[in-house]
């Protein structure tokens, strides 16, 4: 009973907080668009790519994509490490 009360109260507080933020934002008219307008105006000239989204991903923010593919690689290496021992037929030892 107490747990339900605590959870409900914290949910109410969070809903009020997020809802206040959400109602203050305006949909459809972003406030600051200087950087994106620069990308849209000069992106074709600077990268030669018609798709501005790809231009941002691979050229303007290439380091972001580099870190992202590194994260993907690390996650897949982690999955491989987790299942590597099971293939050889030997079980995990208990401690």
């Amino acid at each position: 009973m107490k747990k339900v009360l605590v959870v409900g109260a914290s949910l109410l507080i969070m809903a009020a907080f997020f809802g206040m933020i959400a109602l203050n934002l305006t949909f459809g008219s972003p406030k600051t668009t200087d950087m994106d307008d620069y990308f849209l105006r000069n992106g074709q000239e600077l990268t030669g790519s018609n798709n501005e989204c790809t231009a941002v991903v691979f050229d303007f923010r290439g380091f972001d994509t580099l870190g992202e593919s590194t994260v993907l690689f690390c996650a897949i290496v982690g999955v491989g490490l987790m299942f590597r021992k099971m293939q050889g037929g030997e079980e995990y030892e208990d401690e």
Partner: peptide, 20 residues
């Protein structure tokens, strides 16, 4: 690349297709 709205040319965009 032609600027503005264009039908598109595959042989453009420098290193972006290679990275793709």
């Amino acid at each position: 690349v032609p600027y503005g709205i264009n039908p598109g040319e595959l042989n453009t965009a420098g290193i972006v297709p290679l990275m793709n």
